[in-house]
Simulated scan of single mutants.
Amino acid sequence: MRTLSKEELKRLYDEDFPLWAEINLELLKEKAYDLVDWENLLEEIEDMAKSDLKACISYLAVILEHLYKWDNFKDLAGEEHTGRKWIKSINGARREIDAKFKQYPSLRNKLPQELEKAWIEARKELYNWLEDNDYEPDDFYIPEECPYTYEEAMSRDLKKELKI
């Protein structure tokens, strides 16, 4: 293994991440702890720990977005769209969340605390959807605070509300 100074190793983090990771792994295996780029390594570990929670927040945002569309925009969607796509999307996002919970049980307690983050993402997508459909988003009321509870987002059965 080639020898790098701590400064060179830190610079390598931005210039060649795979090589940076490889060198840090070797340093850890050799127990050369004083040479490891701890600052960036700890940041990477923290990001890894958050990545699955971020995925769950994104799935929750999809659920919230489509619940809100169901409750407020079915008339805008037109007759050809009865909300079935939204139901499928909600159910798919719930399955993805459940799969993450099975894989990483600690997320089950963390996700309910992230409802407002998910709503921020959902609001953005609602505005984009309105614009994409040639509506002026500011003409519609989309609340700042999430109008749904976590429990409602995860369990409300829209199929029971579907009018065929």
Rank of each mutant, 00 (worst) to 15 (best):
M1D: 09
K6M: 09
E7V: 13
L9M: 05
K10T: 08
Y13R: 06
D14A: 11
D14F: 14
E15C: 04
D16T: 09
F17A: 09
F17Y: 15
P18K: 08
L19D: 01
W20P: 03
A21C: 13
A21I: 11
E22T: 13
E26T: 06
K29T: 03
K31F: 09
A32D: 02
Y33M: 01
W38K: 11
N40G: 08
L41A: 10
L41G: 03
L42Y: 13
E44L: 10
I45R: 09
I45P: 03
E46K: 00
M48G: 11
A49T: 03
K50Q: 14
S51N: 10
L53C: 01
K54S: 08
A55D: 00
C56P: 03
Y59T: 02
A61C: 01
I63G: 06
L64C: 00
L64W: 00
E65C: 05
H66V: 07
L67H: 15
L67I: 03
K69D: 08
D71E: 14
L76H: 10
A77E: 12
A77F: 06
E79V: 06
H81Y: 14
H81L: 07
T82P: 04
T82Q: 05
G83H: 12
K85H: 12
I87H: 12
K88A: 13
I90T: 05
N91S: 15
N91G: 14
N91M: 14
G92A: 14
G92W: 13
A93T: 11
R95Q: 08
R95H: 10
D98P: 03
K100W: 01
K102D: 01
Y104S: 06
Y104L: 12
S106Y: 09
S106C: 04
L107R: 03
R108A: 14
K110E: 13
K110C: 11
L111F: 01
K117P: 00
W119M: 06
I120S: 07
E121C: 03
E121I: 08
A122E: 08
L126R: 11
Y127M: 12
N128M: 07
N128G: 07
W129D: 10
L130N: 08
E131M: 10
D132Y: 06
D134T: 06
D134F: 10
D139I: 02
D139R: 11
Y141P: 03
P143Q: 06
E144L: 04
E144P: 00
E145C: 04
E145T: 08
C146L: 00
C146V: 01
C146I: 01
T149A: 08
Y150C: 02
Y150E: 00
E151N: 10
E151T: 13
A153D: 09
M154D: 10
R156K: 15
L158V: 07
L162Y: 15
K163F: 10
